[in-house]
Design a protein around this nucleic acid. Sequence first.
DNA 1: GATCGATTTGACCGATCGGTCAAACCACAA
DNA 2: TTGTGGTTTGACCGATCGGTCAAATCGATC
Lengths: 205, 205
Amino acid sequence: MERAPLKERAAQILASAETLFGERGYDGVSVRDVADAAGVKKAAVFYYFEGKEDLLERVLERYYTAHREALTSAFEAKGPLRARLHGVIDAYLGFMAENHAYARLVQGLMAQGPAWHGHLQRNLEPLLRWTEEALAEVAPDRGPLAARHFFLTLSGAVINTFTYAPVLAPMWGSDPMSADGLAERREHLHFVTDALMDRLEPRDG
Amino acid sequence: MERAPLKERAAQILASAETLFGERGYDGVSVRDVADAAGVKKAAVFYYFEGKEDLLERVLERYYTAHREALTSAFEAKGPLRARLHGVIDAYLGFMAENHAYARLVQGLMAQGPAWHGHLQRNLEPLLRWTEEALAEVAPDRGPLAARHFFLTLSGAVINTFTYAPVLAPMWGSDPMSADGLAERREHLHFVTDALMDRLEPRDG
DNA sequence: GATCGATTTGACCGATCGGTCAAACCACAA
DNA sequence: TTGTGGTTTGACCGATCGGTCAAATCGATC
């Protein structure tokens, strides 16, 4: 392997880890696998990172910041509530479309014991708070119409688009992850948010 | 370990596998772990089952039949569409509440490479078909309002209730998995289906 | 060409994995 | 008492895991 500066090589390894963790899950990928995909020997991974856990933490950290950056502007936009929500849905969907691996990786970590739950909480909390702020005008702060329920319902509807896609694909008719498929899904989610808003704020918002 | 008839001992092992796979995921559990939890030595697991994969297949098979049985009657019920949908939501939620491990296990398998996708498809397909039949009166068979989108959205809203619960719990206020928490979630999901139906069938259905 | 620090690597470690197997064990019938 | 067949077990296997380390290799500097 020819030489390469520290940052570049680390980025190669990180990118390979990102892809593989997303495809096969944390436990399903060995350090050897990551090294092979990056065109590097296994020991080099331990030269650039403290270990496999460190590798996953860096991958998650990258995702977290990208995830939050993608949603910040959408949440802070002005205008009527419905338009803002559509913007958030679009930003969420767009980010996931460009980071296929992320949704699958996070779902895998959730289903895999409490070891990483704290990590995931720190990422989810600001999204929940933003949703609560955005819906403060129309949703009560407790009960079945509280903002947190809509957060769980809508984020699930977005994320599951990507986690279920490879399983549903054979019976979906068309490819649910294609550009057309995602555009259709986007329209569906707009319909859902509009339907919910119709019931939450009987007059136009 | 004292003697026990074949069926009984196999059921013990299966029950332990069920719990552990749900808590830590398939890859996160060793055959040794399952044996220990069942109060049996590791070799006994291989006496009653062909291997670890066979163990998971039996667990999934049990779940599949239970899952389908729980939803069959709800889907086949008579009455207005909204009431039928509420019934399906309740049955779905009730089944998951009594089988915490199932949702987490399935999500984990989805996020873990295509090895088990075929298996999961065979379970998901009848649910999708039932949803398509149930919504045939109000939903077109293509486009963003097709039944398959509502299937993905609503099943995601139900399942994520359980997979996200342990992660969201600290910021949820109350325990989302308690009886009260689930009742509240149930009301929320009824609200969501009603909101969707309001838009799908402008007149009462 | 010698030196030096950063990078790369092959060899190696102990632990654990899924799986095998022959021996031991036990209830029961002859 | 001696079989006998179903059950349980400890010991063992090869493979793979995450991780370590000293030696080899390289680019730049003098």
